[in-house]
């Protein structure tokens, strides 16, 4: 059973003329790192939002770990971790307090939760800033806390929406190193979107490129690069497939 299987998924937002997703089909095997790549407005966030039940699909189906998102959302929510594109934290609480609250909402408490938070703060180099308010954090620090909040409950599938956007090189490296080891150590499936194509090329077992709500191509990065003539990197492939015009949505 694949971690994610999507069939002919369509989404047209209310009052929108163009569909945001135009019949997307996708299968993500378990224990892989899957990169979902595409220019701004391609439909990446929309797809992820449907997967975690924030947005309803217009038609088509999506299954996570064999469960249908339109029917078994409750069960699905328990086994996926979601790291939203926008920082989703309470700015007036400290990093530690944010994580404690979210841990509580996942039903974790006491020593178990404390140890977990301590461990992850250490992993992400945040121990010294744990008691500062999130509003005083740098962009990179917020991103890292945002990520921890999505993995406290040990999900089987981790979904990240542009986790490395707006962060410095060090934070980015820390995050991508973590994702790699998290995937290796626990066999966790990771689905993530990014603009950082060189990062994706190194990190991902498989990628899909999406543009205008349609999948343009899909496969292992090296295989895709090899298929296309005059292509030596994922970035070159991406430009060839999606064009050079700037997307302002």
């Amino acid at each position: 059973m694949p971690a994610v299987s999507i069939h002919s998924l369509c989404k047209t937002y209310k009052d929108a003329v163009e569909p945001s997703l135009n019949s997307i089909s996708l299968e993500i095997p378990r224990a892989t790192i899957f990169g979902f790549l595409g220019p701004n407005g391609a439909g990446k966030t929309t797809t992820l939002s449907i997967l975690c039940g924030l947005v309803k699909a217009t038609s088509g189906s999506a299954k996570i770990l064999g469960k249908d998102v339109s029917k078994e959302l409750k069960e699905i929510k328990k086994c996926i971790g979601m790291v939203p594109q926008d920082i989703a934290l309470f700015p007036s609480l400290t990093g530690q307090e944010n994580l404690t609250y979210f841990g509580n909402l996942y039903g974790l408490k006491g020593k178990v939760l404390e140890n977990k938070i301590e461990h992850y703060l250490d992993t992400f180099g945040l121990t010294n800033n744990a008691h500062k308010r999130v509003s005083q954090y740098s962009g990179g620090m917020k991103r890292r806390i945002n990520l921890i909040a999505g993995i406290l409950h040990d999900p089987q599938l981790l979904i990240l929406d542009e986790p490395t956007v707006g962060v410095d090189v060090q934070s980015r490296k820390m995050i991508s190193d973590f994702l790699k080891s998290y995937n290796k150590a626990n066999g966790i499936t990771i689905l993530y979107t990014s603009h950082m194509l060189d990062e994706a090329e190194k990190l991902c077992d498989e990628v899909a490129i999406i543009d205008h709500g349609k999948i343009v191509t899909q496969g292992a990065p090296q295989a895709l690069i090899a298929q296309q003539e005059n292509c030596h990197s994922l970035e070159a492939l991406f430009i060839q497939l999606t064009g050079r015009s700037v997307r302002d949505h």
């Binding site: 924030l54 979601m82 939203p84 926008d86 989703a88 909402l105």
Partner: peptide
């Protein structure tokens, strides 16, 4: 909460 995105997180949580 709606604006700073924490509502989104609350909604993707189980329960």
């Amino acid at each position: 909460e709606r604006e700073d995105g924490s509502l989104t997180r609350l909604k993707i949580m189980p329960g």
